[in-house]
Computed example of a mutant assay.
Amino acid sequence: MMLIPLIKSNLVIFYYFGAFLPIDSIFSTQGIMVMLLAAYALAMWMFLTSAPKVYTIMVSDLEVARQFYEGLLNLSVADVPLHYYYNYEQVLGTSGVDPMYLSSTTTTTPRLGGGEGLWYQLKKNTQLHIISGASYGHKNRQRHVCFERQCLEEVLLRVQARRLRYKIRRDKPLNFLVKDIEERVIEMAEVAD
């Protein structure tokens, strides 16, 4: 046993180090299980905090959206983040499908209802997930709808940086129009809570 001195008013008191740190209980079955759970919790925390932030935009037409985000905004195609991939796999009940058989170059992702999705890198640790499902706007206008203002502000900054024609219709909730290559008007709208 190791002795640790404690000096108090000119008296030296020795304590046994082993009395405060029960080594035998740490290496017991229960102690090892607790250490494994703590290591697992730390690994999950590190995984989830390093995962990219994902914004979702619902669009009227995925092909028009692909042309807009890849062509005009010049966003690079991103891989589906693991936390989204595994969540979809659990929801669909396809846990028997090995991810090795799925192409990593495709921009489509499995969704409920069999629809497609597009994934783009918006910033360093921020991705844009484009899904179908938005209705067409006034005069069959393409509509891109988002629930997060920060997402649309990032897209607007990208539109401004690329010097595309746009018009801000409303600031709160954010709503602006932008023209694509084929002169189609795309309405970008924030959904108010």
Results as ranks from 00 to 15, higher is better:
M1G: 10
M2V: 09
L3E: 13
I4W: 08
P5E: 07
L6I: 15
L11F: 10
L11R: 13
I13E: 09
F14I: 11
Y15P: 02
Y16R: 11
F17M: 07
A19G: 06
I26W: 13
F27V: 06
T29V: 14
G31N: 07
G31M: 06
L37H: 08
L37V: 13
L37A: 03
A38Y: 05
A39V: 13
A41R: 12
M44T: 07
F47N: 05
L48F: 14
S50E: 08
A51S: 12
A51W: 05
A51Q: 02
V54P: 03
V54T: 12
T56K: 05
V59G: 05
S60N: 04
D61T: 13
L62E: 04
V64H: 05
V64F: 07
A65M: 04
E70A: 13
G71D: 00
G71N: 01
G71S: 06
L72Q: 11
L72I: 10
L73E: 03
N74M: 08
N74W: 08
L75Y: 02
L75A: 02
S76C: 08
V77Q: 04
V77T: 09
A78V: 09
D79F: 07
D79Y: 09
P81L: 09
Y85C: 06
Y86Q: 11
Y88I: 10
V91D: 02
L92A: 11
V97D: 04
P99M: 10
P99R: 12
M100V: 12
M100S: 07
M100F: 07
S104P: 05
T105M: 00
T106F: 00
T107K: 01
T108N: 14
T108C: 08
T109D: 00
T109Q: 07
P110T: 10
L112H: 03
G113E: 06
W119F: 14
W119C: 03
W119G: 00
Y120R: 00
Y120L: 05
Q121I: 07
K123R: 12
K124H: 11
T126R: 05
Q127P: 02
L128S: 01
S132V: 09
S135M: 10
Y136S: 03
G137E: 03
H138I: 15
N140Q: 12
R143E: 03
H144I: 12
H144W: 09
C146L: 00
R149K: 15
R149N: 14
Q150G: 01
Q150M: 08
L152Y: 00
E153R: 14
L156D: 01
V159G: 01
A161G: 04
R162S: 09
R163D: 09
Y166L: 11
Y166C: 01
I168E: 05
I168V: 15
R169G: 06
R169Q: 15
K172P: 06
K172L: 06
K172A: 14
P173Y: 00
L174A: 02
L174I: 11
N175V: 12
F176G: 01
L177P: 01
V178M: 10
K179S: 05
D180A: 02
E183P: 04
E183Q: 14
E183L: 08
R184I: 11
R184A: 05
M188I: 15
V191F: 15
